[in-house]
Design a protein around this nucleic acid. Structure first.
Length: 931
DNA sequence: CTCGTCACG
DNA sequence: GACGTACGTGACGAGT
């Protein structure tokens, strides 16, 4: 018996979670202007609710309505089958904090808002539908989720809100091949890869519907499975009977969800204008607020003060270190955590024993919730001074690390609490090693980078000085420098606390400064889509590391040492004296003073240049000494930078090499790799390429390398709109040969390789902001000839000059350039005069091209984890236009297909390129084989 | 700590 | 007409 609901009544059930996801994906990542809170999904959600209310449905208007939400990820279905929904992709981190706000929005619209712990929205919808149907009323479920189709019939129908199409029994039959009452049987057999419902392998919806049609229902089918004629089908049904029954329990909606409210609470109510307007104003939805105000004839509350101008003026009090507290026990920590949960935002900084996130030990955590509200939680301090050898005695006044981390974890993983860091990838990795996956996150370094790449670097001390007028305590004041340097763990807790908590407060203040500047500077999308999501992706790659064959490298080192010793003897013999061939100074004096060779150019320091091209010219004239030195240098480089150095980077715990990528290191959006740099492993010479043989896959695995072909030239073709270039890329013809053919009027067939080489050099030169001088040097031709090539090139492809001129003009006018994807790169010095202007000009021309290529591979990397989540594969390395994976032998082809699809489609849907992106793939036991 | 050099894209 | 230049990085050894 249902109180207050029966014949003539009409209940609308809105699938709230589906609304949120649709809103999230349909809209760009909007943020609240005043504080940068992600708000796009809430905005879309509110617009949909408002539209829904305005529609009214005329004579078919509902008498009752409710919005139903999923409560939590874990439901009773996980008890039945632990893997249920296990392969769901992670929620986008800027979406989670919006969940509570969508509940608030629903209430503000005065619509019943329902969720129940342990049950999915679908179960609540099922229960309400069943009860309403039994009471003799009608139900419309506003959702397009096929899982709800089992409820259709007997007064219950669905409404697809996107298509505006009603879904009745006929539409269900069209989709599943059976009536609503047998939908669960079909779903149980077919399974569902999205929810990870196993079903019967090899049986899809079509076959399932046919079987159910033939046998009537699932139990009958399973009981009579022996009768099935097709041997494969028969076998799969018999073998998987239990799994199919479990699947049925997973897809069967629960019509007996406990509900703690009556139908009367669902009756339709007009929104309360005051409450609704208050909510919309707080969210800073101007258009919708005005619309709603107009509809109710109410006055729209004044919008909140335009933050930026005010914030500049309303200065925060100066940083005062004496306000900080040290958290020494559970009670104090609990209080801080409660405050953090309430504020929803915390700046965090971890202190460790070292700079290598893969080895450093956690020493303390500092937290800041606002100006003057910062604390330091010491966890791993030791009594430093006590004695030299027995050090490591734990300092007094610290709570146990395990307990502290246990208390921190829920807050650091709480979707409703934003964690702010300065270079937060570092802290993320430290905490990840303690089982904490911090989310959602913001990073002041990346905010600064999104706003001001190219203007300056983005280190904390620099940012604090520039934007807060504050000088941070230098770390050296605590730990000293050089020989006397101590570890952070040895620093006295009180001193450490001041330093650490200050860092957290500076971070909080920088966030407060930068966050509101994203939208007015139109870099919100760049930050949200190109910077912030890189943090967990890169952290995972760095933590995975790459396996190297240290023995192979050591053998190479020995061989190099022997060869070098031989060359050194030869060089000394040729010079007639002993000297260090590694010293440019000594070498220059030998070559140009002692031996009197020509071509000695002295730079500003007065030293002769002995760079490779100088030595190559001398060698070409027939001098042996410079030729030997070139050989010696190559070996010396390979040995010191690679074969000697790489084995020292092998992590003793993982046995692998873990690089670190800096996200905000390069001006253009490229990553930079350090400690060690794995983006400059040799490849151009045969000797060097052997070093790549030492980068190997684990046993049973392969390395797979995928790289973009000619990505920068393709971008140039698109942004400069060069028809000839675009057509060539679409037709897949040799782009350098095409260029040569256009320039010199020779056919592509049987082209002189020399001519092609020149065209290739020009194509690259264009990307770099070509000059006659540069091209002349690169091709070793007279400058006049080089200039003539460039002139011809611009004649044939006039769009390139137009692109270069307009880019430089933009840079001069705005002080920055942008990539296709909205990344902004500042161009300081573009308005200078004199020699420096040339460099700034070329950098401005190059930045949108190199930057767009960087954006594209970032987009691919961000999508990659989800795209390959079903494969036994890991993304390991990025080298600007190449991604390297480690994958189980049997899954190589699947990985290549999946990763290539992501990479080739990475520009979409933000930008539709006029040229295809092409990715080439290779695989092998080593990087040398894969590349 | 800066410079020259050279590895990569 | 001369200036100094291809764009973007990081690591190494030498020499201050």
């Amino acid at each position: 018996m249902v109180e207050g609901f029966g014949k003539g009544h009409h209940l609308h059930l809105i699938d709230g979670s589906a609304f949120i996801f649709r809103a999230y994906h349909a809209l760009p990542p909007l943020t609240r202007r005043s504080d940068g809170l992600p708000i796009g999904a809430v905005a879309g959600f509110c617009n949909m609710l408002w539209k829904y209310i305005q529609d009214g449905n005329g004579s078919d208007a509902p008498t009752h309505a409710a919005v139903i939400f999923d409560h939590s990820a874990k439901t009773f279905r996980n008890d039945i089958y632990p893997l249920y929904k296990a392969n769901r992709p992670e929620l986008p981190e800027d979406l989670r904090p919006q969940f509570p706000l969508t509940r608030e929005a629903t209430r503000a619209f005065n619509i019943a808002c329902i969720e129940t712990e342990g049950y999915e929205a679908d179960d609540i919808i099922a229960t309400l539908s069943c009860q309403a149907r039994e009471a003799g009323g009608r139900v419309t479920i506003i959702s397009s989720d096929k899982d709800l189709m089992q409820l259709v019939g007997g007064g219950v129908e669905m409404l697809d809100p996107i298509k505006g199409k009603a879904i009745g029994p006929d539409e269900v039959r069209e989709k599943f091949g059976v009536g609503p009452e047998r939908v669960v049987d079909v779903q149980a057999l077919a399974g569902d890869s999205v929810d990870n419902v196993p079903g019967a392998p090899g049986i899809g919806i079509k076959t399932a519907a046919q079987l159910i049609g033939e046998y009537g229902d699932l139990e009958t089918l399973l009981a009579r499975a022996e009768e099935i004629r097709q041997p494969k089908r028969r076998q799969t049904l018999i073998e998987n009977a239990e799994q199919i029954r479990i699947s049925k329990r997973l897809v069967q909606l629960d019509c007996a969800t406990p509900l703690d409210f009556g139908f009367d609470t669902l009756s339709i109510r007009e929104p309360e204008p005051g409450a609704l307007l208050d909510f919309l104003t707080r969210m800073e939805f101007r258009t919708l607020t005005n619309r709603v105000a107009e509809r109710f004839g109410a006055e729209a509350p004044p919008p909140p003060e335009a933050a930026p101008a005010q914030a500049e003026g309303a200065e925060l009090p100066a940083i005062e270190r004496s306000l900080y507290t040290i958290i020494r026990d559970e009670e104090a920590l609990a209080e801080w955590l409660a405050e953090i949960a309430e504020k929803g935002v915390v700046a965090i900084d971890t202190e460790t024993t070292g700079l290598d996130e893969m080895q450093a030990e956690l020493v303390g955590v500092s937290l800041c919730t606002g100006p003057g509200r910062a604390a330091y939680l010491p966890l791993g301090h030791v009594d430093g001074a006590a004695d030299l050898f027995g050090s490591g005695a734990r300092a007094a006044g610290q709570m146990p690390m395990a307990r502290a981390l246990e208390m921190l974890k829920p807050v650091l993983e709480d979707a409703a609490v934003l964690k702010i860091g300065q270079n937060i990838k570092y802290d993320w990795k430290i905490l990840a090693r303690h089982g904490i996956r911090m989310a959602p996150i913001d990073d002041t370094m990346l905010l600064s980078y999104a706003l001001n790449a190219g203007a300056h670097n983005h280190g904390m001390d620099e940012l604090a000085r520039e934007y807060l007028g504050h000088d941070c305590v230098p770390i050296k004041a605590l730990i000293g420098s050089g020989k006397a340097q101590i570890g952070f763990a040895q620093v006295a807790i009180d001193k450490a606390g001041e330093y650490a908590a200050e860092d957290a407060e500076v971070t909080w203040r920088l966030w407060h400064h930068f966050r509101p500047k994203l939208a007015p500077n139109r870099v919100t999308t760049a930050y949200e889509r190109l910077e912030r999501p890189m943090v967990p992706v890169l952290a995972a790659m760095e933590m995975a590391g790459v396996r190297i064959d240290a023995e192979h490298l050591k053998r190479m080192s020995n061989a190099f040492a022997q060869k070098m010793a031989g060359l050194e003897d030869e060089i000394h013999g040729l010079a007639g004296e002993s000297f260090n061939p590694g010293s440019p100074k000594q070498l220059g004096e030998i070559l140009f003073d002692k031996m009197g060779l020509t071509g000695g150019k002295q730079g500003k320091t007065g030293a002769y240049s002995t760079s490779a091209d100088v030595l190559e010219d001398l060698a070409a004239e027939g001098h042996d000494l410079p030729a030997r030195v070139l050989d010696w240098r190559q070996l010396s480089k390979l040995k010191s930078t690679y074969t000697d150095a790489l084995p020292t980077f092998v992590n003793p715990e993982t046995g692998r090499v873990h690089t670190s990528y800096s996200i905000a290191g390069a001006q253009t959006g490229r990553l930079a790799s350090t400690d060690p740099n794995l983006q400059n492993i040799p490849v151009r010479t045969e000797e060097g390429r052997r070093i790549r043989e030492a980068f190997i896959a684990a046993p049973g695995m392969r390395l797979v390398s995928l790289d973009y072909s000619q990505i920068e030239l393709r971008i140039l073709a698109h942004v400069a709109a060069i028809p000839a270039l675009k057509q060539a890329f679409r037709e897949g013809i040799d782009i350098h040969a095409m260029t040569a053919s256009q320039m010199f009027g020779v056919p592509v067939e049987g082209m002189d390789p020399m001519i092609r080489r020149r065209a290739k050099a020009i194509n690259f030169g264009v990307i770099y902001g070509i000059s006659g001088f540069g091209l002349a040097r690169n091709l070793r031709i007279p400058r006049s000839e080089a200039q003539a090539f460039i002139d011809t090139y611009f004649e044939r492809f006039p769009e390139i000059r137009a692109y270069m001129d307009s880019t430089v003009a933009d840079a001069k006018e705005n002080g920055f350039v942008r990539t296709l994807f909205g990344r902004r790169i500042m161009t300081p010095g573009i308005n200078q005069s004199g020699p420096a202007a040339g460099g700034a000009r070329r950098a401005a021309i190059n930045a949108p091209i190199q930057g767009a290529a960087a954006d594209i591979i970032r987009r691919a990397m961000i999508r990659m984890p989800e795209a390959i989540s079903g494969l036994p594969a890991t993304m390991l390395l990025q080298v600007h236009d190449e991604l390297v994976f480690e994958v189980e032998e049997g899954a190589v082809d699947d990985l290549i297909a999946a990763a290539r699809a992501v990479m080739e489609g990475a520009a979409d849907p933000a930008v539709h390129l006029d040229v295809p992106l092409v990715v080439e793939a290779g695989q092998g036991a080593s990087w040398a084989e894969a590349h």
